[in-house]
Simulated assay, not measured.
Amino acid sequence: MSKLVINNLHSYYGKSHILNGIELAIESGEIVTLLGRNGAGKTTTLKTIVGVVKAQEGSVQLNGENLVGKEIFEIARKGISLVPEHRGIFGILSVEENLRIAIDTNSPWSLEDIYKMFPRLKERRKNGGNALSGGEQQMLAIARALVNNPNFLLLDEPTEGLAPVIVDEIVRILDQIRAAGVGVLLVEQNLSVCEKLADKHYVVELGEIVYQGSKAEFSKQDDIKSRYLAV
C-alpha cells in the first residue's frame, strides 16, 4: 500500500506566504478532500505537491521518499498526477490522440479500460478536444491522467460548472478509481459531492489545516462547515 504524506509544507508566490505548514496524508484506495474558501490555499497545495510551485520548507513523502526539490517530470514519474482546474486538454488533438500521448506502457489502464469507464469518450474518440463539452473535457483530463499510471490522483475542482447529471457521472468514476486502489486528493467546492465520496476531510484556512476528520466525524461538524466553508 502506497502512502503520500505532506509535512509542514510552506510555499510562496513572490513574497506572499501562501502555505503555512500544511500537513495531510493519503493512502492507496482512499479519497481525501481538501476543503476551504477561495484563496485558502487549496490549489497551491496541489501545485506544491507536484512541484509546479516550489516548496520552501517541509516535505512531500511518497512511501518515505521526499519529493521536494525534484523536477515536475520526476514527481510525475513517481506516480503523482495532477488534473488542474483548466484541464489542459489539447484542443487540436482528438480524444484518442490526447489519451495516446499520455500512455505509460506500465499502466494497468488500457484504452479499452478507459472507454469502458468513460463511454462518452469512446463515442467521441475521433472528436477534437475543442469540440467537447466541459464535462467531456473533464472526463478526458481524468482519463488522460489514469493512462499515465498514477498511484495518486490530485483533482482540482472537477465538477465546477458541470450539469448535475455529469456530476453524478464524475462521482461514479471517482468511486471506480478508488476501488482500483488509486489514492485521490480532491479539491472541490460541491460539499455534497465531497461528503458522498470522501473517506477523510481536511479544511484549510489561510494556508493552514484547521480541521481534519473522518467521513463520520465531519458529517457532525456543522460549526466547522459554517465557520470555514459557508459563503
Rank of each mutant, 00 (worst) to 15 (best):
R125M: 10
P119G: 08
A102L: 05
W109A: 03
Y115S: 03
W109N: 06
L121W: 04
R124C: 11
G128C: 02
I101T: 12
D104H: 10
R124D: 04
R100T: 06
T105Y: 08
R124A: 14
N130T: 13
E123Y: 14
T105R: 15
E112N: 12
A131S: 14
L140P: 07
G129A: 09
S107T: 12
L121C: 03
G129Y: 14
S110V: 06
I101C: 09
I114F: 02
I103R: 12
S107H: 07
Y115T: 02
E136Y: 11
S110C: 04
I103W: 08
I114P: 02
W109V: 13
G135K: 11
D104F: 06
S107E: 10
R125Q: 12
M117P: 00
L121V: 07
R120A: 08
L121F: 06
S110T: 15
E112R: 14
R120C: 00
M117C: 00
E112A: 13
E123T: 14
P119F: 08
I103Q: 14
G129P: 10
D104W: 05
A141Y: 01
G134Y: 10
D113M: 03
Q137Y: 12
R125Y: 09
D113F: 09
N127L: 12
G129C: 10
L111N: 05
I114C: 02
I103P: 03
L99P: 04
A102M: 14
N130A: 12
A102I: 06
T105P: 04
